[in-house]
Design a protein around this nucleic acid. Structure first.
Length: 270
RNA sequence: GCUUGAUGGGGA
């Protein structure tokens, strides 16, 4: 029954993993989902060893990890730099024929290699895909960007552009950053226009804050301010990014002005 | 296409 695993999941997502595991132990039926939510909880909390122990244990009792289990387990590999375990999961992914077929598994694998510092392996995974998808490109571009390999990130963007994928907001933001980091202004403007036109500034709080932060971080606080002013509503994260940008690259006076304004609007506590 | 529950890539 699903009720038990839902309960385990709830405790795990609250970070109460001891409780989660206790409930799990009491379950009459410990199915794949129950194991998976437990592994996901441990991995999310950075308790990677525990996550792997569960993975091993579930195999011992004859519950077989499926695609979701693998995705959750891959997360535990990034933080531990557990390349061994990661490679084992890669083998399992190939064995189950999931590579390139299950997009969530595929991008999680790419992110895992990147998290282990093996960007070449991440690149190889993408190269090996007969049919590349938006999510895999986005994962790879993000990885390069995060680790400061801006040229490589941009190269991927160009290849992605040739492929003519329809991009969601994550992909658009990711590509925009790649172009911004190399100062390819024309592309930045085109992508920004696409984001604006698709109404993402209105309905996607992640995209909004990411853009404010991107400009603020880079010292283009004036641009950050422009984006910020275009937002239909300004939330805590957007304000915080802008203030941080002023502190870092602008003036502390402007930062203070923002702070006061945010407090007046009740977005930040006074 | 839908039919109990778990999963990736962008901000904090």
């Amino acid at each position: 029954l699903g009720v038990g695993s839902t309960l385990v999941d709830m405790y795990a997502k609250c970070g109460l993993l001891v409780c989660a595991h206790e409930i799990f132990d009491k379950l009459l039926v410990q199915d794949v989902v129950a194991w998976t939510v437990l592994i996901a909880g441990y991995a999310e909390d950075g308790l990677d060893e525990e996550a792997f122990q569960c993975l091993e244990q579930m195999k011992v009792v004859g519950a077989f990890p499926n695609a979701v289990t693998i995705v959750c387990s891959l997360k535990a590999c990034c933080s531990l730099r557990a390349t061994q375990e990661g490679q084992q999961l890669h083998v399992e992914i190939e064995r189950q024929g999931l590579l390139g077929k299950n997009h969530l598994v595929t991008s999680a694998l790419i992110t895992m290699y990147a998290g282990c510092g093996l960007l070449d392996r991440a690149q190889k995974v993408v190269d090996s895909l007969p049919v590349k998808d938006m999510g895999s490109w986005t994962a790879l571009i993000s990885a390069y960007t995060e680790q400061g390999y801006f040229e490589e990130a941009y190269k991927c963007f160009e290849q992605m552009e040739v492929g003519g994928y329809s991009c969601d907001s994550t992909a658009l933001v990711c590509c925009l950053k790649a172009c911004h980091n190399l100062g390819v202004t024309e592309k930045v403007q085109v992508l920004f226009a696409r984001i604006e036109q698709s109404g993402l500034l209105e309905r996607d709080i992640f995209a909004r804050s990411a853009l404010v932060e991107m400009y603020a971080e880079n010292g283009s606080v004036a641009l950050a301010r422009q984006v910020f002013d275009k937002l239909p509503t300004q939330d805590v994260v957007a304000w915080t990014s802008l203030i941080a940008g002023y502190m870092e690259h602008g003036s502390s006076e402007q930062a203070l002005q923002c702070l006061e304004q945010a407090q007046q609007e009740g977005v930040l506590p006074s």
